[in-house]
Design a protein around this nucleic acid. Structure first.
Length: 206
DNA sequence: CATGGGATTGACT
DNA sequence: GTCAATCCCATGC
């Protein structure tokens, strides 16, 4: 049932893929985590890098699904995306936050922090915690150094909350961000109305 | 060839 | 809440 959730996600349109990837796992080396926040980007809308077309920078986005698009943000951070949709379409799911699962000590050392909710609670934070950098751009997510996997078997199906994307200036109205309801590892709290919906899922925020 | 902007974070007020 | 750090690449002259 959920054992192939990550595989099914790679076959879907990007917005559905973003929702489907919430709850799946990402691993690099000994470190891994459950995806708790994603955003969809598609070449049909101006917030996506691929909106401008095929360039050296956006080339990865137009390749076949199932590879990583890793790019530098604000000159400092590396951000990890899952490329989806058929070759020739520029679309990817930004991985915005993880709930740390394994390799916590390594994550703490890389991040220089202790609190688990600070380790992977942002797109730049999780790449630092997992040791993912720009050299892993275009590498496969199945059978490559970065491993995309199904949800941990002991977990209930996550309740995803939808909202607008973060940190962009164009196409800000598209509700293409997905979070696990009530999870404290998400990068930023969502609006009050959505928070109420999240609390309704029975996962108290403490 | 020079310039401007960005899918962010952490430190400081 | 505000702000600097830092660099690839698209754009324009």
């Amino acid at each position: 049932m959920s054992a192939d959730r990550h595989l099914r996600a790679l076959e879907l349109p990007v917005v559905e893929a973003a929702r489907m990837l919430v709850g799946c796992t990402i691993a690099h080396g000994e470190c891994s985590g459950v995806i708790v926040e994603t955003e969809a980007y598609h070449d049909s809308e101006p917030a996506c890098h691929a909106f401008i077309g095929l360039t050296p920078r956006t080339k990865t986005l137009f390749e076949a699904p199932g590879i990583a698009y890793v790019y530098r943000s604000y000159g400092i951070h590396a951000l990890l995306n899952v490329v989806v949709e058929p070759e020739g379409v520029g679309a990817a799911v930004l991985i915005r936050a993880l709930e740390p699962l394994t390799g916590l000590d390594t994550m703490r050392a890389r991040r220089g922090l202790d609190r688990p909710t600070d380790l992977c609670s942002g797109p730049g934070k999780l790449t630092q915690a997992l040791g993912i950098w720009l050299d892993l751009n275009e590498t496969p997510l199945l059978g490559g150094p970065i491993r995309l996997g199904p949800p941990p078997p002991d977990r209930p199906e996550p309740a995803a909350v939808v909202g607008p994307r973060i940190g962009i200036t164009r196409a800000v109205d598209l509700p293409w961000r997905f979070c696990v309801a009530g999870n404290r590892n998400v990068s930023r709290p969502w609006p009050p109305g959505l928070m109420a919906a999240a609390l309704g899922q029975g996962q108290g925020t403490g």
